[in-house]
Simulated scan of single mutants.
Amino acid sequence: MKDKLEQLFYFGLGSALMAKEKLEQAGESAKGLKEENERKAREFFDQAVAKGSEERGRLKEEVKQLLKEAIDELGLASKADLDALREELARQRQGQS
Score class of each variant (00 low, 15 high):
Lys60Trp: 00
Leu66Thr: 00
Ser15Met: 11
Gln47Val: 01
Glu61His: 10
Lys51Gln: 09
Gly57Val: 00
Leu33Gly: 10
Glu61Cys: 09
Phe9Trp: 03
Arg86Val: 05
Ser78Leu: 09
Val63Thr: 07
Ala77Trp: 12
Leu89Gln: 12
Gly95Pro: 01
Glu36Gln: 11
Lys22Val: 06
Leu33Gln: 13
Arg58Lys: 09
Asp81Phe: 10
Glu54Lys: 08
Gln7Tyr: 02
Ala16His: 12
Tyr10Phe: 08
Lys60Ser: 01
Lys60Gly: 00
Gln7Trp: 01
Lys34Ile: 02
Leu85Lys: 08
Gln47Glu: 07
Glu43Lys: 12
Glu88Phe: 07
Leu17Thr: 05
Leu5Phe: 03
Lys2Ser: 02
Ala30Pro: 00
Gln47Thr: 03
Leu76Lys: 09
Ala26Asn: 15
Asn37Tyr: 04
Arg42Gln: 09
Leu13Ile: 03
Arg42Trp: 03
Leu13Phe: 13
Glu43Arg: 14
Arg39Cys: 00
Gly95Val: 03
Gly95Leu: 09
Glu88Ile: 06
Ala50Asp: 07
Val49Tyr: 11
Lys4Asn: 03
Lys22Gly: 00
Gln92Ser: 02
Glu54Ala: 06
Ala19His: 11
Leu82Ile: 10
Gly32Ser: 10
Arg42Val: 02
Ala30Lys: 14
Gly57Cys: 02
Gln94Met: 05
Asp46Gly: 00
Glu43Ser: 05
Leu23Ala: 12
Ala48Phe: 07
Met18Glu: 15
Tyr10Thr: 03
Val63His: 05
Asp3Ile: 02
Ala77Glu: 15
Lys51Ala: 03
Leu23Val: 05
Phe45Cys: 05
Glu21Cys: 07
Lys20Asp: 11
Glu21Trp: 08
Leu85Cys: 02
Gly27Ala: 07
Lys34Gln: 06
Ala26Ile: 15
Gly32Asn: 13
Arg91Pro: 00
Lys34Gly: 02
Asp81Glu: 15
Glu62Gln: 10
Lys51Ser: 05
